[in-house]
Design a protein around this nucleic acid. Structure first.
Lengths: 188, 188
DNA sequence: GTCTATACAAAGATAGAC
DNA sequence: GTCTATCTTTGTATAGAC
C-alpha cells in the first residue's frame, strides 16, 4: 500500500533524473501514475512545490544514511567511502540516470527560485561529507594523499557528478566505475 | 560586419551554456538579436537544426585548436594541458556558464535525435585528446602517474565537466581552479 | 481525492506580403 | 531577409461537480 503522493514523488524523481526538470510535466506524471492531471495538482499545487518536495526528500534520505554511518564506530573510512559510492553505482547501471542534483544543477537557471538553495545545499553538504571522510581516513592512516581535504573532495565530487553526466551522453557505463577505481587508487 | 546567422548562433550558444537547450526559444533569441521570431526561423528552420549548427561549430573550433597544438613540435605536454584547461577557466569566470556539451549532456533525453551523436562525439573526442596528452607526457618524462591513460583521462575529464556543473549551482568560482590544481599536482 | 471542462500563456512552425 | 498574422500543440493552473 503506497499512497498517491508518494507515487507522484517517485515518478517525478525518476523522470527528473532521466530527463530533467524542464522536460517533466503534470501530464507526463499523471500518465505514468495512472491518474488525471488535476489530481496530480491536487497533491502538489504547482510544479515548483513538487520540485521542492522531490529534492527535500532526496536530500533527507542521503543525510540519514550518512549520519548512521558516522555514528557507527565499527565503520572504517573505506566503508564510508564505499557507502558513499554505492548510489552513484546504482545510477550508473541505468543508462540515462544521473544524480538528482546533478540533473538539476544542469538547468539551475531554468528552475524556480525556491529550488536553488536546495540544490546548492545538496552540493555543499556532499562535498563536506567527502571532506570529512578523507580527513578521518588520513588521520587513521587508512588513506595517503598530499592534497588538502577540501581540494581533494571538490575534485572527486566533481569527478563523480561529471562521470554520470558523461555516461548519459556516451552510453559508456564504465565511465563511473573507472572514476571510482582511480579515486581508490589515489588514496592508497 | 557580422551577419545575422552568426549573431543567432552566438546568441543561441550563449543561452544554451547558461540556461540549457530546453530553456531557449526562438522568441528569446529573436529578442536578444533584435529581430522577429520568423526571421530567426528563416535562418534555422527548426530548433533542432539550430541546435545542430551550434554544436557543430563549437566542436570544430575546439578541433582546429587541438590540431594546431599537436602539429607544433615546440609545444610540451604541459603546454597542451594548459591550453586544454583554458576554455574551462574562461567559462568558470562566468557564474552560470558551463561547457556547451556539458549543458547538453544534462538534458540528452530532451534533445532531438539529430543532436545526440554530436554530443557523444564531443565527449569521446575530448577524452581521446586528454588521453593522448597524458600518454605523450609520460613517454617524455614530463608526467608521472600510475594509472592507465584511458582511466586517468576519463577521471579528469569527468572532474572538469563536473566542476563547471557544481559551480553553477553553488556559485563557488574556485571549484574549477581547485580541480585544475589537483590534476597538475597528481601528474608530477 | 479524483474527475471533466476550461482559461490562459508560450512554444514551434507556416503563409504570404513587402 | 524581415515582417505581420495565424495555426496547432502543449504547458501550468483553476473552477466546480461527484
Amino acid at each position: 500500500m503506497i499512497n498517491t503522493s508518494t507515487k507522484i514523488l517517485d515518478t517525478a524523481q525518476e523522470l527528473i533524473q532521466t530527463r530533467g526538470y524542464s522536460a517533466i510535466s503534470f501530464q507526463l506524471i499523471a500518465d505514468q501514475v495512472g491518474i488525471r492531471k488535476p489530481s496530480v495538482i491536487h497533491h502538489f499545487p504547482s510544479k515548483a512545490s513538487l520540485g521542492v518536495a522531490v529534492i527535500a526528500r532526496y536530500r533527507e534520505s542521503f543525510a540519514i544514511q550518512m549520519r548512521s554511518i558516522k555514528a557507527d564506530p565499527e565503520k572504517t573510512a573505506w566503508d564510508a567511502l564505499e557507502f558513499y559510492f554505492s548510489p552513484y553505482l546504482a545510477f550508473a547501471e541505468t543508462p540515462n540516470k544521473v544524480c538528482l542534483c546533478g540533473a538539476l544543477a544542469g538547468e539551475v537557471l531554468a528552475l524556480p527560485e525556491e529550488m536553488h538553495s536546495e540544490v546548492k545545499d545538496f552540493m555543499e553538504s556532499h562535498q563536506k561529507w567527502l571532506e570529512d571522510i578523507f580527513r578521518t581516513g588520513r588521520k587513521n592512516g587508512e588513506f595517503q594523499f598530499d592534497e588538502t581535504p577540501p581540494r581533494l573532495s571538490k575534485t572527486f565530487f566533481s569527478a563523480l557528478q561529471g562521470a554520470l553526466l558523461i555516461k548519459r551522453s556516451t552510453g559508456d557505463l564504465s565511465q563511473l566505475k573507472d572514476v571510482q577505481k582511480v579515486i581508490r587508487r589515489l588514496l592508497r
